[in-house]
Amino acid sequence: MPTTIALIVIVALFFLIVLAVIGIYNALVRLRNQVDNGWSQIDVQLKRRHDLIPNLVETARGYMKHERETFETITKARSAAMGARTVTEAAQAEGQLADALSKFMLVVENYPDLKANQNFLALQEELTSTENKIAFARQNYNDQVLSYNNKIQMFPSNVVAGMFAFTKRDFFEVQTAAEREVPKVSFA
């Protein structure tokens, strides 16, 4: 008789553990999917940025005859960003591209004719918005990565994560030149 009770307890315990594992596993999968979704959101916006650049350069080139260097920097940074493979690599290349674009936007201020061009203004709004969307998508992705990584490292979910090979994800940290340096005040 005592053996049957012990057996029932063991079986019940076993089922409880299996249920808990299933619950944790599902939570992990949901978090991982949110991270993936967050990354694809960034990816969509990065692609959009790459698509916008040729248009922008084409429109601006006619007005900015003496800015060959600026255009070359942008084009180079763009192709480097498009060729990036890992998250860290992409983050670095995109940071450089963002730098080049913000420099370009500063230079534009010197060309009143260009700033009066309706077509260019529309492109500028699209570019500003795309930069914002990248920043907000990054913000969202990093939030998701934080909660996913927390879940993977904390007990008891770390046991389940180890069993099913859930691995940590990288943050998307872009450090642009503007963020590295102290902002300079200019009296233009």
Binding site: G38, Q41, E125, F136, Q139, Q144
Partner: peptide, 16 residues
């Protein structure tokens, strides 16, 4: 109004 649309989309992304 492209700007309104863009801003709404930005906030949609930020809010997930």
């Amino acid at each position: 109004h492209p700007q309104l649309f863009n801003v709404v989309e930005e906030m949609k992304i930020a809010a997930g």
